[in-house]
Structures are given as C-alpha cells and as structure tokens.
Amino acid sequence: MGILEVRDVNKNFGGLKALNNVNLDVEEGSVHAIIGPNGAGKSTLLNCFVGRLDPDTGTVMFNGKSLLGLKPHEINQTGVVRVFQTPEIFTDLSLLENVMIPAFARRDGAFKLNPFRDVEREGEVRDKAMNILEEVGLQEDRNKIASSMSRGDKRRLELAMCLVQDPVLLLLDEPTAGMSRADTNATIDLLKRIGERGITKIVIEHDMHVVFSLADRISVLAQGTVIAEDVPANIKGNPKVQEAYLGGAHL
C-alpha cells in the first residue's frame, strides 16, 4: 500500500488529453521521480494532487483519504506540501518571517484570530524557523528581504518554508531548474539529508543527474500516459523510455 495512490486519472483541456489513465503508487518514505518530455503532463499531475486542478475522472488517495475536491489549504493541512517550479515566497518579507509564516500555519491551522499575541514572544516557532534556516544554510541572511536573494537562495528558502511544516509528502516541481552544477549538487545533498527524516517525496525533474542521484523509483510520463515505472537502473535500460524521452544520447 502506497501513501499516495493515484488511480485512473484523466484530465482533458479542451481536445487535449493531458492525462490519460494515469496510475501511480508512492511508497511511504521513498523518493518517487516523475520524468518525461515537455508537455507530458507532469505538472498537470502535480496540480491534481494539491487542489489546483480537479481531474475529470479517477481518484487520488493520500493516507487512505481522497484529496479530490479539497481546497489547497485543506490539502496542505493534511501534510502534502508543494515546492513550486518558480519559487513562491513572500518577497516583501524577511527570510525569517518567510519561514515563520508556514510554521504558524502548521501550529494554528487554517485560520486563527490572535491579534494580541506578539511575534517576538513566539520563541518556539522562531527557534524552529531558525533551525530550518540553518539547515538550508540561510541563517546568516535571516533578516534580509526575500526579494533581494539570488534565485538559488530563493529556492532554498522555499524548501525551508516547506520543511518547517514537517510535511508527510513533499512535492518538488523541478527543484534544480535553472541552477548551476554546483548549486544543483548542493540541492541534491540537501534533499538527501532531509530524506533521512522519512519524508516521502515526489520529484519532477528534467536533470537526469538529479533524478538518478535521488530517486528510489521512477515513473516516465509521455503524452499523458505512464509508459514505464521501475527502479532507476531498469529505467535507464528501457528502450521504450529511451525512444520517447531520452533519445538514447543522454545516457
């Protein structure tokens, strides 16, 4: 039994079949990579997990509960947390505030009217946020405004914002897109380190180096259909995958 079970998910955009009977089982504690050429439906699939899109048919079960029909904040409260392709952060606020907000959201739930508490006195939340910032290597910059950070740092910040929520399932949409090789390797190391906490992860990625360094299992999506699902070693040698996506040359 997987922690996330996706059964026969279909999604059409007008005449375009974005997802065609997609099935997916993600084991608890594993890293499951979803790869595929551009337009294969990877992001559409991810959007179906977080409440941004509702599939036309099919089911998405997380921990035995359906995620369909829930609003994004309700899905987050069940423990499914998403890192976006372009970092979604609070650009006008400091890094520390950026991380404290998700920590408050996890502690206080979807809404809490506490206008007379003082942020300065929320030591527990602050310490938690500081620890996470230290873990991703941003503790020195905690008082800087988020918009002043580099792209790579913004990605690390967003990751910190997701980690501070103690996610059960972490969805990563191209966590290393647009990063230099050094930054990419640093991110791989970071993701491996947080892997030790037993967080289940789904990674969408183009960079084969990242995929093969992290993934326990790989699903290959092409034109909305899962054409292969296996351990990385077998995916490498799968001729169907090479034809559809890798073209044989990359490996």
Binding site: H73, N76, Q77, R82, F90, A110, F111, Q165
Partner: peptide, 8 residues
C-alpha cells in the same frame, strides 16, 4: 503561496 501553506 499562503493558500499552499495551509492558510485560508
């Protein structure tokens, strides 16, 4: 981001 952070 706030919506995807679990805040209504």
């Amino acid at each position: 981001r706030l919506n995807y952070t679990g805040v209504n």
